[in-house]
């Protein structure tokens, strides 16, 4: 394998990983606070992609590619983030909050139920055929030293990076972030100190769902929009969160990128058959659970969200 091919695979892996990381943040935030895995997260991503698609197509009309389509795209993204945030808060209120004092298994099962309701509901309402999410910009690839990069890949990396840094700043520097960290450490004590725990939890779901919507739209540009799009992507992002150390924001970013690169290299360089591509992520999951169950970055940072 030449150097150029190596870097091409690396680039493909990094962009895949950027998306995993973005989605993993949602899992990790909810887990950090509630110690519960929100299995409906991937389906919120799907809902976000559909909303983004509808808003974008409506705003764009038949306009040719240009400044307006890019503005329309980001507007669609903002609307989709807002609606998905509301959806996330709604799901939490209806399906998880009443079960907060129940056994730990109850909200988990409830989440799986929500996941099925969302994906089957979308299949019923929008059909099961893939829909094309048109690029809002000219996606002609750029070649840098024999490595080909598309504007879309740059967008994925840029948006993921910005979102992750913004989230990190939010959690570390703002009052709300502090309240989140407090809730994560010890809920009853945080409540005694005057933290509105219900509000914090709602906020957590809102942010996580908004990030999922961004991930959904970024994926949709490449892989189209369809009702079951959240299932496998959601699972992979979940694995990424566990690999990085669930409950840990930096861990989710690291785990996501690592998983994307491992999947690409596993097939391209280590010669794992293409048919087994999806098993790489889950193989890594089992390995991590056996060797280092707290995740790769699990103990390096104490800070949790």
């Amino acid at each position: 394998m030449g150097i150029a091919e190596f870097f091409q695979h690396l680039m493909n892996g990094l962009t895949l990983g950027g998306i995993y990381a973005l989605i993993a943040l949602g899992y990790t935030m909810v887990y950090g606070i509630l110690k519960f895995i929100n299995f409906a997260h991937g389906d919120v991503l799907m809902a976000g992609a559909f909303i983004g698609l509808f808003v974008f197509d409506w705003l764009r009309g038949s306009a040719p590619l240009g400044a307006w389509t890019i503005i329309a795209f980001f507007l669609a993204m903002v609307v989709s983030m807002a609606v998905s945030a509301l959806l996330g808060m709604f799901i939490e209120r209806v399906a998880y909050k009443p079960l907060r004092t129940a056994t730990r298994l109850a909200p988990l099962l409830s989440a799986i139920g929500v996941s099925f309701i969302l994906s089957n509901g979308a299949a019923w309402a929008f059909g099961t055929r893939s829909r094309k999410f048109n690029y809002p910009f000219d996606n002609t690839p750029i070649t840098i030293a024999q490595v080909v990069i598309t504007p879309h890949q740059i967008l994925i990396l840029a948006v993921s990076l910005v979102m992750m840094i913004a989230l990190k700043l939010f959690v570390d520097r703002t009052r709300m972030g502090k309240a989140m960290r407090a809730t994560s450490l010890d809920q009853p004590t945080a409540m005694l100190m005057g933290v509105n725990v219900n509000k914090v939890i709602s906020m957590t779901f809102a942010i996580g769902s908004a990030l999922a919507a961004v991930g959904g739209i970024l994926i949709a540009l490449d892989f189209k929009v369809y009702a079951s799009m959240g299932t496998m992507t959601g699972l992979k992002a979940f694995v990424a969160a566990v690999v990085g150390g669930i409950g840990n924001i930096s861990g989710a970013m690291f785990g996501g990128i690592l998983l994307g690169v491992l999947e690409t290299f596993g097939v391209a360089i280590f010669g794992i058959p293409t048919g087994l591509k999806d098993t790489i992520a889950f193989g890594v999951l089992i390995l991590i659970l056996l060797i280092r169950p707290e995740g790769l970055l699990g103990k390096v940072e104490k800070e949790k969200v």
Binding site: G2, E5, H9, D222, F223, A268, T274, G275, K277
Partner: peptide, 20 residues
């Protein structure tokens, strides 16, 4: 000769190998 599973959406890895 590269293959994929039905339902796959990402073919960049296989295409990069074919290109090489």
């Amino acid at each position: 000769a590269e293959s994929f599973n039905v339902g796959d959406k990402d073919f960049k890895t296989q295409l990069t190998k074919i290109r090489s």
